[in-house]
Nucleic acid binder design. Structure first.
Lengths: 213, 213
DNA sequence: TCAGAACCGTAACGTACGGTACTCTGATTT
DNA sequence: AAATCAGAGTACCGTACGTTACGGTTCTGA
């Protein structure tokens, strides 16, 4: 459809346009118009259509563009003691809370959810892949390492991950999506990350007598 | 605005119309048109506008109508031993999973989330009040009773509730909203409810030596 | 029986927006 | 210098849909 739909190659100018589209998406949600994007990005509508095919194409490109920015380097550690495992889990919890409480994430999830009903595009899949599933992918190695080193005890890493996910996110995301709350403070995120990690370790951590060293 | 906006009095005919609007909302999401509702409900558009003011009024009335149907009687129990507490928690978990995985809930949440961006109406607040907050209201007495009887240990009932919420829902709702999954099977709901309850008791249950009896 | 209200069906209006075509300008290439 | 091209700006088209208006029909109550 669009030039840039299949190949992820974007010119700097196109990236600029997508950035303003993203900003507009955060401000106005799914009700943004092609004209508004063109005006704000100082480009013509025709260019938008040439580059992105149609409205859905622009939306998809915008979501993918944001997704490509979020990608984080997974830091896998050499020595895994209980302290570093705890810190690692807290780090992931912190990051995740920061992501889901950001304006951008809320706006993108709203748009993707709105589109999920009428299966025209797959924004939902894109958001999911770069959110919840990306997190699982990054976290699983840590969980596995924790299991190998004897600090964690579980059968299925997927189940363990989903428990961690639930303990971290709780009702935060759905409340934000539904318009509750102004947002999470730094302090709240910090204490939530610690609490979630402690609870996770209470559920999946090796008991004292099983623990390595 | 609309006759029925402030007073919750609905004629049977109006209830019928809202039921078909609800069905249509599940099928088509937010893209339903007034004409489609009128056609399907065998009523005139003029009647829709007279009854509900405008499109938002109809949507709001529909969401409230569904909400009024969901209201469940809170079963507070006389004697609270660990078994009945466990059963009660499992029951709430089961109910909640059943609700959030239902077509109706998914559709309503999608619409409400879509509207949450442009603060025109307060669908989000309505959905939240009759979903997450209603659950909390029903569950808190159980938690408090558990605390009084010494089977549960926690400082803040709200925090305990949110943990329970997270353990039950995990990533289910967001995945469903984003179009992942066909849905939860009965069996999955059952085992999830049991798992969540066990995990919650592991975190907040009194340890053996503190336990009453 | 009859007046009036309620309501159905449908036509019509206004608008907003997706999408297209065309012109003009400035830069790059040949 | 001429030719080509990308893209800004703008005008325009078609359509979908919210909203309104109106004529005809059924219901209700005196």
């Amino acid at each position: 459809m669009a030039d840039t739909a299949e190949m992820g190659e974007l010119t700097p100018r196109q990236r600029d346009v997508l950035d303003t589209a993203l900003r507009l998406l955060v401000e106005e949600g799914d009700s943004l118009t092609m004209a508004a994007v063109a005006r704000r990005a100082s480009c013509s509508k025709e260019t938008l259509y040439k580059w992105f095919g149609d409205r859905d194409g622009l939306l998809t490109a915008t979501v993918q563009w944001q997704a490509s920015k979020v990608r984080v380097v997974p830091v896998d550690q050499k020595k895994l003691d209980l302290v570093s495992l705890t810190e690692s889990l807290e780090g992931y919890a912190r990051d995740w809370l920061k992501v889901i409480s950001s304006d951008t994430s809320v706006a993108l999830n709203r748009v993707a959810i709105g589109h999920a009903g009428s299966g025209k595009d797959n924004l939902g899949a894109i958001v999911l892949d770069n959110g919840r599933f990306a997190l699982a992918k990054r976290l699983k190695p840590v969980l596995d390492a924790g299991k190998r080193s004897g600090h964690l005890v579980f059968e299925d890493a997927e189940t363990a991950f989903r428990t961690f996910f639930g303990l971290v996110a709780r009702d935060v995301q759905i409340r934000l999506l539904l318009g509750d709350w102004p947002g999470l403070t730094e302090a709240a995120i910090e204490s939530d990350a610690i609490r979630a990690t402690q609870q996770f370790l209470a559920l999946y951590g090796a008991r004292k007598d099983q623990q390595v060293q």
